[in-house]
Write a protein that binds this DNA or RNA. Structure first.
Lengths: 261, 261
DNA sequence: GCGAACCATATTGTGCACAATCTTGCGCAT
DNA sequence: ATGCGCAAGATTGTGCACAATATGGTTCGC
């Protein structure tokens, strides 16, 4: 009687089911109607897949037309996105896909390392049964990553690579840390798109597999070490790509890559 | 020529100045006009000072009258607050000050411990000169806390106690971690208000002083240990207060303490 | 007397119209 | 030819009016 009003859902998102902890992965910003959440998710997807690049102007009326909703709804969505540092709102000028600065990236990396180390530690120190469950799920995910690479599907590869980290966080069970990481991953995706030219090394899949092995074995130190390496790898690549261009002419010229449609 | 457009600011907020890193303390949600940010800040202040209790209904028109702005502005502010889990927006029912659940508090505590340990570690491992600067600032803050206690100003005491932690984060220099902690502290303030009856031990000031001594001495391990103790102290008190009442009759009855004006 | 449907009121949700602001392109003077 | 100013168009910002929904009390039927 006094239970929640969500009797029978689950088993609707296709492949990602059977594991309740993964339910938190779905983006559900509060205060938005289902229709708005849909559009919100599509925007985030577009960013994760690099279809929306940093600096692109998001014209309200255009978005309204694309998603088939009114301009005020778009307006609310943009406001929410701005709270998560995914969109930059300039007064009287409009909304732009965020272009993270050097300092922001450094901060984000520090936060990410902090969160993910905690996540991996949590996973690796769970009971054997639960750990087996988790590892099995993540191995399947890596399988999907491999397929995407084999098929040459660059977009899917990028998306799945980021999702791997989010799935780990979801499985660790802390909703708050998961949401923090979601924001960070999105921002990092933007930073990589903006400042990295050869983004061949977003996330090497072999490192994912090794990390998973360590978790499987319950080897805390090794898992921690591998993760730290993995992330510092990314950080070095990104921060190197950004080195010196920040707030400089190059960054300004980089803004050219706007252009709608 | 290619520098930022912030030539000479600073030195405007009265007592809290002379330290650039503390500038990040001021709440500035993006996408809100200055007028809206003002109202936003007042709402957060009211929550930090326990003048706004969890579960209280926030009627749009009332707030509009109080702050002297239009209803649509209030609407935007509430949407932003909902993104930070400070306000719960129920469709067609209205906005309510959030009442964190047991699970949310656990997650928040884990995140908080993670962030603050990193903050304290960062502070304690800074160079001697910088460390002296920081410690001096924080000691002055503790002085203010003492005064509030001596004067019997309960409201100021609560506010300053929470602010101590935020100042440490601000001085550590990571903006993103700071903002995360701001959200967590606000939520925790709500949780304490909602579920703790004798909230005499929000934060004991002597623990702040001890922690600061350890940072001053550059004693990483001791600082880390003291912080962990300090927070676990709080956690135990809160989670004990909440034990069993979650989603139960008690929680439902607790909603009675609404009443506007 | 009890319960259920109904209506009045209060509150939130949404679309629209217009105001404010920025951008762009043109023309004019130097 | 170059730079300045101005006007037209495009885009964002805001208030208002009305629709949709929830709430609480009342009345009617059993």
């Amino acid at each position: 009687m006094a239970e929640n009003a969500k009797p029978k859902r689950r088993r609707s998102a296709g492949a990602v089911v059977e594991e309740p902890a993964l339910a938190g992965l779905e983006l559900r910003p509060p205060g938005l109607t289902p229709v708005e959440q849909e559009a919100y998710r599509k925007l985030i997807d577009a960013i994760a897949a690099r279809r929306l690049l940093p600096g692109v102007k998001l014209v309200e009326e255009d978005l309204a037309g694309i998603f088939g909703v009114s301009r005020e709804r778009i307006r609310r969505i943009l406001l929410v996105l701005s709270q998560h540092d995914i969109v930059r709102l300039e007064p009287n000028r409009g909304a732009y896909v965020a272009r993270p600065t050097y300092a922001e990236c450094q901060d984000a990396f520090e936060a990410r390392l902090l969160i993910e180390r905690n996540v991996v530690r949590a996973l690796a120190s769970m009971g054997p049964a639960r750990r087996r469950m988790i590892v099995s799920h993540l191995r399947r995910h890596i399988g999907a990553e491999s397929e995407a690479i084999a098929a040459g599907d660059r977009v899917a590869e990028i998306r799945l690579s980021g999702e791997f980290h989010l799935k780990m966080a979801a499985l660790a069970g802390n909703q708050r840390l998961l949401r923090m990481l979601q924001d960070i991953v999105a921002q990092m995706s933007l930073a990589l798109a903006a400042h990295t030219h050869a983004h061949d090394l977003d996330c090497s899949i072999s490192e994912h597999a090794e990390l998973l092995d360590a978790i499987d074995a319950g080897d805390l130190d090794r898992a921690d070490h591998l993760l730290a390496h993995h992330l510092e790898h990314m950080e070095a690549a990104l921060l190197h790509g950004m080195h010196g261009e920040e707030d400089s002419l190059a960054a300004a010229l980089g803004e050219i890559r706007s252009g709608n449609a």
